[in-house]
């Protein structure tokens, strides 16, 4: 009950942030460009078309009125119309969202599956050779230009070794599984279609690793430093004094404590991963929102760019909320 109350409070707290997010996107799309009408109309539009847009979008009216129109549109799920294909941006994003979600979730899984053990290992082998190697690995991670890493991975694993496919979610000759979740890895399993699953897995490995490396490094660092802090606490000595084995002490007693900061970072990283998807999807020809937005940038499809920005911000804010909730569940000391 108290947790529910807490969640509701956090939800209420989100309202002003969400409002701020829409205002910011509105300012970026309506107030910064010299002429928003010509931005919305696109670079190739005739002057007449621009004037039509100006009228139909009410861009000649005061900014407050414009914001209200913009906000009511948002509430109805209207993000404007793409210049490239004249489809509603919402529909486009909805089509591309599952691919991005699948990629981000796969990266997140890699982050956790690799990052947490590495962090723990570095903490218990603190200042020894293992720790130094892991530190170098993570310094490279946080300093890596994602797009360049992607190219290098392609060059090695696709071009030279030929081990992994170079683009897309599936081989072109294969038909995607029937859409349930939109995530090929899950849909193919639901269908019981093993070859599709393997093929999809093969395709996602490189982009998922590429996208995860930066956050992998961040998570490794957080786990390491929080484990070191926790392992220095008195209750760890207590656990030792009562005969618990090192494995139980590290993996149960210390780890549950260090989960609190780890969850915070992980949740925030998921939002950042969506941002990183912009670059990764472009490199690996992954048909998600990130590739969509870069294609939009190239044709200066302004409404599409703004739609993407807003959706990512919403996901980010939602992840923040989720982190707060998990935090409350994990940390008994929190005041509801």
């Amino acid at each position: 009950m108290r947790v529910l109350h807490y969640v509701l409070r956090r939800l209420a707290y989100m309202v002003p942030v969400l409002f701020g997010v829409t205002v910011l996107v509105f300012i970026i799309s309506h107030a910064i460009p010299g002429d928003p009408a010509s931005m919305i109309a696109g670079p190739k539009a005739s002057r007449e078309a621009v004037e039509n847009i100006r009228k139909s979008h009410g861009l000649d009216r005061p900014l407050v009125v414009q914001y209200l129109t913009f906000a009511t549109g948002l509430l109805k799920g209207d993000l404007g119309t793409s210049i490239r294909n004249h489809r509603p941006v919402t529909a486009d994003l909805a089509d591309f969202f599952p691919a991005t979600l699948e990629l981000t979730l796969a990266s997140m899984t890699l982050c956790l599956v690799i990052g947490i053990p590495l962090g723990i290992l570095a903490a218990i082998r603190r200042n020894r050779i293992t720790d130094h190697i892991i530190r170098v690995f993570s310094v490279f991670g946080v300093s890596m230009p994602v797009f360049w890493l992607g190219l290098m991975l392609l060059f090695v694993f696709y071009r030279n070794l030929g081990w992994l496919p170079g683009s897309g979610r599936l081989d072109a000759v294969l038909t995607p599984p029937v859409q349930v979740t939109g995530l090929y890895l899950i849909d193919s399993l639901l269908e019981g279609n093993w070859p599709i699953f393997v093929n999809a897995l093969w395709h996602i490995l490189l982009p998922a690793f590429c996208l995860s490396y930066v956050y992998l490094a961040i998570i490794t660092r957080i786990v390491r430093s929080s484990m070191i802090a926790v392992l220095g606490q008195e209750f760890i000595t207590t656990a030792r004094a009562y005969g618990l084995s090192e494995a139980v002490i590290v993996l149960k007693h210390a780890f549950k404590n260090s989960l609190i900061p780890t969850v915070t970072i992980t949740g925030l990283s998921l939002g950042e991963l969506m941002g990183g998807a912009i670059l990764t999807e472009t490199i690996f020809g992954w048909p998600g929102m990130g590739k969509y937005v870069v294609d939009s940038v190239n044709s200066l499809d302004f409404p599409a760019i703004m739609g993407f920005t807003l959706v990512v911000a919403l996901v980010y804010v939602a992840m923040n909320l989720l982190v707060d909730v998990l935090y409350a569940v994990l940390n008994p000391r929190i005041r509801y």
């Binding site: 942030v17 701020g20 941002g275 990183g276 937005v293 940038v297 200066l300 993407f308 920005t309 911000a313």
Partner: peptide, 18 residues
């Protein structure tokens, strides 16, 4: 807080595009 609600690259991209 509102500005920090966007991943850095996404906000930078939107601003630069505008």
């Amino acid at each position: 807080d509102v500005m920090l609600s966007f991943p850095s690259l996404v906000l930078a991209m939107a601003l630069a595009a505008a």
